[in-house]
């Protein structure tokens, strides 16, 4: 017997539906469709990176709600270095380093000091908000931002070309990182150990693996990725810094991660979905296509997360030991 119920519940079914929808829309409004999709991809980049940061921390057992602050501080430092040196590569590296350092701070608080991880993340958020606000001076400007690199003939493919193959470097890098992280997490020794630490740290400890090191390393790595997200905002998307410019992206990334059930590929899909919602919101706000207040579309990702978390549509299972500091006997 063919199980329609199963088909409706499957992810592929939804992907297929969305694919049909995109084709239909491209057929009728080619320009708008390409614009919305390209913007969705750009909007999804910081979310996907944030989710990668969050999930690698949580897979090793450390909750990270400080991503908002990590991104903000990295965006700021990346911006400053860009202003001082005029070198965008240095600036991106500075952003990544800043992110890694905030990761180190979070790891120090939650692994060594065993502070409640939510509070640790909140410290980073408030600190980043205050520091960037305090040291920010109006009127600084950079010499340009990262420019799109078109991938030659690939760019000429209809629909896909302009959306996928004409993007600035960090967007490409994000796609690559998603695959790398998937490989790292599920096909390497490091990934096996990381996931084990997040599930049952004591068991891992009895096997002679250093729980503290694994957690530190993953949280710092995650911080570096969040730093890249911050660099994206100032150096690739906007080209300048504004106060509080992350504007909740760190928290949406958290939602994206849960939506993606703590997997890189799933998170990327969720990031695209959320990015799509955001670009649609902008389109509606300015295009005046449909008259739904844009705030309602704006709150959609948040509402969806609550619904998913409450288990109304499929339950996601988080790593078992997250939130709990590990103590040796």
């Amino acid at each position: 017997m063919f199980q329609w119920k199963k088909v409706f519940k499957s992810v592929w079914f939804f992907i297929f539906l969305i694919f049909l929808l995109i084709l239909w829309s491209y057929f009728h409004y080619p320009v708008v469709t390409v614009a919305v999709l390209a913007s969705a991809l750009r909007q999804s980049t910081p979310l996907a990176l944030g989710a990668l940061c969050g999930l690698i921390g949580e897979r090793s057992g450390v909750i990270n709600i400080g991503m908002e602050g990590q991104m903000l501080l990295s965006a700021f430092l990346g911006f400053l270095v860009s202003v001082w040196t005029g070198n965008l590569l240095f600036a991106v590296l500075a952003g990544v380093m800043t992110g890694a350092l905030t990761g180190l701070l979070l790891a120090f608080m939650s692994v060594t000091l065993r502070i409640d991880q939510i509070i640790g993340g909140t410290v980073i958020n408030i600190l980043a908000f205050g520091l960037t606000g305090y040291f920010y001076q109006v009127g600084l400007s950079t010499k340009g931002k990262l420019q799109p690199i078109s991938l030659g003939p690939l760019q000429d493919i209809p629909l896909l070309g302009p959306v996928l193959f004409n993007n600035p470097p960090i967007t490409y890098l994000t796609l690559l990182l998603v695959l790398v992280m998937h490989y790292l997490l599920f096909y390497t020794r490091w990934g096996l150990r990381t996931r084990a630490v997040g599930e049952h740290p004591r068991a891992v400890d009895t096997l002679g693996i250093n729980v503290f090191f694994m957690r530190y390393a993953n949280v710092v790595l995650g911080g570096a990725i969040a730093g890249l997200a911050g660099a994206f905002l100032t150096l690739e998307a906007v080209g300048s810094f504004e106060r509080g410019m992350t504007n909740g992206r760190g928290f949406v990334a958290l939602a994206v991660m849960i939506f993606g059930k703590w997997t890189p590929i799933g998170s990327w899909g969720a990031a695209l979905l959320f990015g799509f919602a955001i670009s649609l919101q902008t389109q509606l706000q300015f295009g005046g296509l449909i008259t739904i207040p844009h705030q309602f579309i704006g709150m959609l990702p948040y509402l969806l997360t609550v619904i998913v978390l409450a288990g109304f549509v499929g339950r996601a299972r988080p790593p078992a030991s997250i939130g709990m500091p590990y103590t040796k006997e």
């Binding site: 709600i65 939510i118 909740g248 928290f251 958290l254 939602a255 849960i258 207040p293 705030q295 309602f296 704006g298 709150m299 948040y302 509402l303 997360t305 609550v306 978390l309 409450a310 288990g311 109304f312």
Partner: peptide, 23 residues
């Protein structure tokens, strides 16, 4: 009743509240 962690729902509902009051 569903076990959803109050920190995540809290963060999300904060943004819902911001959007709703804004509207």
């Amino acid at each position: 009743y569903t076990g959803a962690h109050e920190v995540i729902t809290g963060i999300m509902l904060n943004y819902v509240a911001i959007n709703l009051t804004d509207y």
